[in-house]
Design a binder for these strands. Structure first.
Lengths: 228, 228
DNA sequence: CTAATAAGTTTTATTAATCAAACAAACTAT
DNA sequence: ATAGTTTGTTTGATTAATAAAACTTATTAG
């Protein structure tokens, strides 16, 4: 049986995984608010259980099994959030904390019922995907904001490597999932972008940030293209 | 903060408390499926925290604070059960297990929302009372089946000192909350009763059992009485 | 290329929850 | 009342999750 604590490690590993799937002990430690020494011991246990690939002094990587288990936790979290909003009348701000608790309930029928009552959603309302019953997450092909051109519109739907510090950075700029951005200009020198969105005008985002913002790119003339 | 495990001890203590409020270490141990030695140490900790009155070799008794905390756990459990049935479409048989998990969620707003959506019920559908937000259980004045006379009707609404062995005894006889019994006869010798209910005729219940079955007694002529 | 710094690991220790085994008190039945 | 049984306690050990401190490896800035 997978414990409360283990579920939290798994979820954090999953969310900190970037494109290469690598996670640093430090980031994991900070995300969970737990000392690195503790994380190291836990990761050795996880390696024993076949949940992560672990080698001393190298970054961590979830195994297939680890990804699946982590996906199941994320599924419980996202279904709970949606259920709280759509069926119980909570506001989106309130639900994260509650879902952090409910996601650790061991009762598959409970979450399947939620899924059923919500019409088996594959996405939450912000476009974040909900893993399926097997814990598999369909990684839809997101575009990166950093690949956009001046004039493009872009809907922010997911975040790569969402550790707390990064989320705080986005929060300070009122950037949240579901938002539509307009790319104003791109600096050829460092790849930083100037964008407009919901009230904010001329906000500058560094290339590092833009690379980690995922979503749907809609070029200026997209609507005019002919299919095929 | 009160832990998962502690909440289970509290709920069990509450449910095993009889009229005198006393609970044996043995019963608690069996109810929880935990060795007596472990229970003893835990009860010392509980005494430190002011949750039980503890003296070596004497029965346990919840303190006021203990009763309150236990009441809050029971509230979470009962509200969850009702919510699962009335708002999520589960059957009554399925919900106990799930509620055993959900009751340990630390999120007051979650349970208050359930209560609100259910119209702040004071009773669950079987007549078991739901403690209020402060954990206080309004001990309505139940009648005991053992105080009934031949000819009386009696609605079973609660059970005193509900340890597993006793519940199994009731289960074997298809006795469950919400049932209406008819008292056929009472043996003057040992106080055992012969009762009829839902299909069963002439079922004999010992005095010991009848003393622990609580509910509403409706004498033959109750309806004819004048108020005051 | 080093020296300094950052990241990661090891070792030792603590706390919570548990059990087994040995022991002690309380109850019971003749 | 006393022997036998049941109930409760103590002690010693175990496992999971954690931290502090000392140590090692990796990265980076001159």
């Amino acid at each position: 049986m997978i414990s409360f604590v283990e579920e939290n490690y798994l979820k954090a590993l999953f969310q900190l995984s970037g494109e290469d799937g690598e996670v640093n002990v430090k980031d994991l430690s900070e995300e969970l608010g737990i000392k690195m020494s503790t994380v190291t011991s836990m990761m050795k246990k996880f390696a024993e259980k076949g949940l992560v690939h672990y080698e001393s002094y190298r970054p961590l990587r979830l195994t297939g099994k680890g990804k699946k288990e982590a996906g199941l936790v994320l599924r419980k979290h996202r279904l709970t959030e949606m259920f709280l909003v759509e069926r119980m009348g909570f506001g989106w701000e309130e639900v994260h904390e509650i879902a952090e608790q409910v996601e650790h309930v061991h009762a598959p029928a409970f979450f399947e019922k939620m899924s059923e009552l919500l019409g088996h959603p594959k996405m939450d309302p912000h476009g974040s995907p909900i893993p399926d019953k097997e814990g598999n997450l369909e990684w839809k092909e997101y575009d990166k904001l950093s690949d956009c051109q001046p004039g493009d519109r872009f809907v922010l739907q997911a975040i790569m490597k969402s550790e707390d510090e990064f989320l705080a950075h986005l929060n300070k700029r009122d950037l949240r999932l579901g938002l539509e951005l307009h790319v104003e200009s791109v600096a050829p020198f460092d790849g930083s972008m100037q964008v407009n969105y919901e009230g904010r005008t001329g906000e500058v985002l560094s290339h590092t940030v833009c690379e980690r913002l995922l979503g749907k790119r809609m070029g200026e003339v997209e609507e005019l293209r002919v299919e095929g």
